[in-house]
Design a protein around this nucleic acid. Structure first.
Lengths: 221, 221
DNA sequence: AACACACTTGACCGATCGGTCAGAATAATC
DNA sequence: GATTATTCTGACCGATCGGTCAAGTGTGTT
């Protein structure tokens, strides 16, 4: 009908693949690689199990594809920092970006967490390669900030882990957080409150004067 | 032989049960409840599968028993804090206690994390009951500290989550941490360095003057 | 020796696992 | 309309799942 014959990778196929990926992300993130079943994924996607395998090949290929998709969303984070950057602005952005990523892709974040919990059998190369270099290069810049007196002389690796873990917590432990707060999900106000808390504590704790207090009235801008 | 006949719950049974619990903790923490198999647990414990079921009844009872054992290790944490306590000392102790717990029971900590990731099907009552009250009561005391001017006026719930997550990270994400650091496990020096970093950033970030700087020479005590 | 009782385990059960395949159904091309 | 290519799926496969059971071993009591 209105199908573009030249491009045989048509929209219908993409739509189905996306719905499979979405269903698989939920099941894998809840139960891990071993605990997830293709039948459960198929049921959630509303398709026969054989159809999942027709599109994705096998369980492992589907899982690896999900991991890659989640990791690609990480590529732009802290990409363009320099020794001349303002630490307060950069760390503040880092915290907010990480919080938003967790909010936008909760299942993907949990998928990542489950893979790490299992010992990272599919991500070992990525962790000790690409991600290790990412951390090392950022750590070097943070160390220069410390040397310039822009902030306290803290170990930048622990600082990166601190921001990662404290933000990750709100997606990964959403069941615990909402159980304790007594709410189903985080409200907009809670989300903003958490961001400001983390910015306040981490920046102040590193001896960085905050660029602006988001709760206060804007200075002049 | 040397068995105490009066106490028919003899040491042999306890020894076997402990080895089963230990094996099960490893398998459940890696693969979650669904992903763990009794056969894998039996293999790791060096027993036939039927023997596991003889001692533990069924898979769910074994799992719940492990969860309870891990939660009981938490009971003493932050048990005796009062509005008159010194925030710096209390939070410092909290950080170190949590780090030591994660170091001492890594599989138990991961087991807890996996249960939360799965949506806490077995822990929902605990989270929204016992643990919620634990957080609420501690939060009330921290709020009094803020009112007394002992520390900044931060949301105590976010502060508790911050300490929980940042310490939990080093056990739960041990695969990621060691992948990035390039070492198999955390060294004693790294462990101490992390504790000092967290104490420095969190206490300073909350506007608390640190009781003592562990890296420096002791003042006079 | 006889008995009681806790322990051990191979064999087995129905259900579900990941994955294959043949053929039906549908769509695209001529 | 005929032909080809793609998409779909029920039926099936061997392996493994959690769990049962009966027959066995061992040990202490009488």
């Amino acid at each position: 009908m209105m199908a573009d014959t030249a491009n045989h990778e048509n929209a219908s196929r993409d739509r189905i693949e996306q719905s499979i990926l979405s269903a698989a992300e939920q099941v894998f993130s809840q139960h891990g690689y071993r605990g997830a079943s293709l039948q459960a994924i198929a049921d959630r996607a509303g398709l026969p199990k054989a159809n999942i395998l027709y599109y994705m090949g096998n369980k492992q290929a589907l899982y690896v594809r999900l991991l890659n998709r989640m990791m690609s969303r990480w590529n732009a984070v802290l990409e363009d920092i320099t020794p001349e950057s303002d630490p307060g602005q950069v760390l503040s952005d880092f915290i907010r970006t990480k919080m938003v990523l967790g909010q936008r892709y909760p299942e993907g974040s949990k998928l990542f967490a489950a893979e790490i919990l299992a010992g990272a059998p599919f991500l070992n190369d990525y962790l000790s390669g690409e991600l290790k270099e990412w951390v090392t290069s950022r750590a070097a810049i943070i160390r220069q900030w410390s040397a310039q007196g822009k902030m306290d002389d803290v170990d930048p690796r622990w600082l990166i882990f601190l921001i990662w873990s404290s933000t990750q917590h709100y997606t990964e432990y959403s069941a615990q957080v909402s159980g304790i707060l007594g709410t189903q999900a985080l409200s907009e106000a809670d989300f903003e409150s958490i961001c400001q808390f983390l910015e306040h504590v981490i920046l102040k704790g590193c001896g960085i004067s905050q660029p602006r207090q988001l709760g206060d009235a804007p200075l002049n801008q």
